[in-house]
């Protein structure tokens, strides 16, 4: 009998029951600290930059684009994912601590866009669980701000963050 394994599992169970009353708090806290990692693979990156610029200032919603993957909890896939880049995307996603969320930005990240019949693209929805899609080619900066708002609303209503934090 594996004593260490049983002990670990029981400790996790106790922690889960202890943390359950705080789950609305986890959701509320994560909602206002969505830090997306820079993952610019094509032209959508310009619109992403504009949405965090002075005019729209998505940072006021508590969302801050960040450079260190291990300190982030969201990833906005800005554009085409090639077969080579898909491997890097997977590595980046696995490095992020839970709870983590994926947003697919632009036509390329949704269904391939203008490269839909290329030999070298991967649809991000085939390799990662995507929470929010932003349609457009490229989307307007307002759409990125709206996607952050949508993600926040989904976190609040569907309890996404606490689910991942307690069960994942």
């Amino acid at each position: 009998m594996d004593i260490a394994g049983v002990a670990e599992r029981s400790i996790k169970k106790i922690l889960k029951t202890l943390m359950k009353p705080f789950s609305p708090m986890i959701d509320w806290a994560t909602k206002y600290s969505i830090w997306p990692v820079h993952f610019t693979t094509s032209c959508c990156g310009c619109e992403f930059a504009a949405s965090y610029g002075p005019r729209l200032d998505t940072e006021r919603l508590g969302s801050l684009p960040f450079t260190h993957v291990r300190n982030t909890n969201a990833i906005i896939i800005e554009g085409t994912i090639t077969k080579k880049m898909a491997k890097a995307l997977k590595v980046v996603y696995e490095q992020m601590p839970a709870p983590k969320f994926v947003v697919a930005m632009g036509a390329c990240a949704i269904d391939g866009g203008i490269f839909h019949n290329s030999y070298n693209i991967v649809k991000p929805r085939d390799i990662l669980p995507i929470e929010v899609y932003i349609p457009g080619c490229p989307p307007r900066p307002e759409a990125v701000t709206n996607a952050v708002r949508t993600l926040q609303k989904r976190m609040q209503t569907l309890r996404l963050a606490s689910k991942q934090a307690l069960e994942g």
Binding site: K83, N117, Y119, N120
Partner: peptide, 25 residues
């Protein structure tokens, strides 16, 4: 340019290479 694992022995710009999506079209 191409990933050597994905494209070993496959040459995408040859005419007999068929992309799956293109096949549907």
């Amino acid at each position: 340019l191409l990933d050597p694992e994905e494209f070993s022995g496959v040459h995408p710009l040859r005419k007999d290479y068929i992309v799956q999506v293109e096949d549907i079209m």
